[in-house]
Structure formats: structure tokens, C-alpha cells
């Protein structure tokens, strides 16, 4: 296994007195899909929030390519190449689908302040946005307002925006939720394909998809890691079966 690109070391997060995440360590390797599963309230989304910088950990550290991320500023982590697709769709509702993706591409390619040349004259940005839309399957809706998209399409747009930032690490929070079965399997296949190039952290409830495409699976229960390993190992793990998979396995 190559050196991890993103590494969490003993991460913990308390809300008031409640420990949402406790002592979670995790490695994300390049070109690999690492799934995190667990029942609702297990702390999966909080874990992603800690990695993306949306939340600051109470304890523990995060490393990007071996260098500790200090301060955990959301935009700084994003500029390192960590992209995030939100579980609760988080888009620019009043803008066109293209502009949503174009802004994402601009964040990557022109992160500094550009005051004079028209935004639409940056060809490379337009192209990157176009590629992301095509990958996620929303290019036919490019000129439509994001708020006019169906729920499933907005989930695809969410993914397209993450891709438009041309990330090295992709944090996906239930990307398949709310999609029709056809679209879900298409996006699952896309995620599997992306896994050939990127490091992906995938939180997902669709167990078929997870066991199909993930190389490593971490099971979280009550904010802590219960088990971590290959899909086969997880399937066979007695503790996981007792605590979580149970009837499914």
C-alpha cells in the first residue's frame, strides 16, 4: 500500500457533553475507495466534517501528504485538493448548473482574485466545468437553474461540483441517496471509475454498492471504529455482524 494521502489520527469531536466521534484513526490512500459505514448517528458525517474542515476536531490530528493540517480552515483544506460533496445538497440554488460547476473550477484554477478579464474568457475553467458536468451526467441541464433540478439531479450536481475542483481526495457523503435505481447504479459505476485515479472516502447506506466498489471498509458505531478491513474481512467479522450488518449478512 502506498503512503496515505489523507490521514486521520485519533480524531475526536464533542458537541457539548456528547462525543460524536471518538478516537478515529483512518488512512486514505491514492487510487482507492475507502467506505465508512455504520448505523445512523454513528458519526460518519461528523468524521467527514472533521476531514474537510467544516468542523474543528476536539482532539486528534489530520495530515495531508504527511503534513499536519493546522487551523483546519475549510477553504485552505479545499485548496490542498480535498473536495467534498455534501449529504444535504449544498449548491448555489439561484445559479445555472454550469455556473455552479464553473465556480468550482474557478476555485481550483484561479483561486487568487482576478479583477479584469471576463470570467467566461477563461477557457480552461469553462472546459473543466464542462468535463465535470459530463462525468456526473448533468450536462444536458447546463443552462437550467440549479433549484429547478430534481432532487436526484441536484445530488449529481453536488458531485459534479466536487469533480470540477479537480481534487486529489474526494469526500462523498451519501452520494447515492435520493437517486432512482438507474441513476444510482450509473453514479456508483462512476465512483468506481474515479477510484482508479483519486482517493475517495465514501459514506453510503447502499450496501451493495459499498461492497462492490470499496477496497477498504471501516465500520463505525457510536462514534468509534468497530472494525476496518477488506470487504471480505468485514463481511466475516463477527462483531460487525452482531452490531450492525446482522440480518443483511
Amino acid at each position: 500500500m502506498s503512503e496515505p494521502i489523507l490521514r486521520a489520527e485519533a480524531l475526536g469531536k464533542n458537541f457539548g457533553g456528547l462525543a460524536a466521534v471518538r478516537d478515529v484513526s483512518l488512512d486514505l490512500s491514492p487510487k482507492q475507495i475507502h467506505a465508512v459505514i455504520g448505523p445512523n448517528g454513528a458519526g460518519k458525517t461528523t468524521l467527514i466534517n472533521l476531514l474537510s474542515g467544516d468542523l474543528t476536531p476536539t482532539t486528534g490530528r489530520v495530515f495531508f501528504r504527511g503534513i499536519e493540517i493546522e487551523g483546519h480552515a475549510l477553504d485552505r483544506i479545499a485548496r490542498l485538493g480535498v473536495a467534498r460533496a455534501y449529504q444535504r445538497t449544498n449548491i448555489f440554488a439561484g445559479f445555472s448548473v454550469f455556473e455552479n460547476c464553473r465556480l468550482a473550477a474557478q476555485a481550483r484554477r484561479q483561486p487568487g482574485i482576478r479583477l479584469f478579464r471576463p470570467a467566461l474568457a477563461y477557457r480552461d475553467i469553462n472546459d473543466a466545468a464542462g468535463r465535470a458536468m459530463a462525468l456526473a451526467g448533468v450536462e444536458s441541464r447546463a443552462t437550467d437553474r440549479a433549484s429547478d433540478l430534481s432532487h436526484g439531479e441536484q445530488r449529481q450536481l453536488e458531485l459534479a461540483m466536487a469533480l470540477a475542483t479537480e481534487p486529489q481526495v474526494l469526500l462523498l457523503d451519501e452520494p447515492l441517496a435520493g437517486m432512482g435505481p438507474e441513476e444510482a447504479s450509473r453514479i456508483a459505476a462512476l465512483i468506481a471509475r474515479l477510484g482508479a485515479d483519486l482517493a475517495i472516502l465514501l459514506v453510503e447506506h447502499d450496501m451493495d454498492a459499498v461492497f462492490n466498489i470499496a477496497a477498504t471498509i471501516t465500520v463505525m458505531v457510536d462514534g468509534a471504529v468497530l472494525a476496518s478491513g477488506t470487504p471480505q474481512a468485514i463481511r466475516a467479522d463477527a462483531a460487525v455482524q452482531a452490531a450492525y450488518l446482522g440480518e443483511a449478512a
Binding site: 474537510s52 474542515g53 467544516d54 475549510l74 477553504d75 485552505r76 479545499a78 485548496r79 473536495a83 467534498r84 455534501y86 449544498n90 449548491i91 448555489f92 440554488a93 439561484g94 445559479f95 465556480l103 468550482a104 476555485a107 481550483r108 483561486p111 461540483m161 475542483t165
Partner: peptide, 14 residues
């Protein structure tokens, strides 16, 4: 203006 949080999560130093 539309969504400052999302801009930051895309990498803009808002």
C-alpha cells in the same frame, strides 16, 4: 452572497 459556506468549501478565501 448566495452561499458563502459552499464557496469556502470549494476553496475560495471568502
Amino acid at each position: 452572497r448566495s452561499n458563502e459556506h459552499r464557496m469556502r468549501s470549494l476553496g475560495f478565501a471568502a
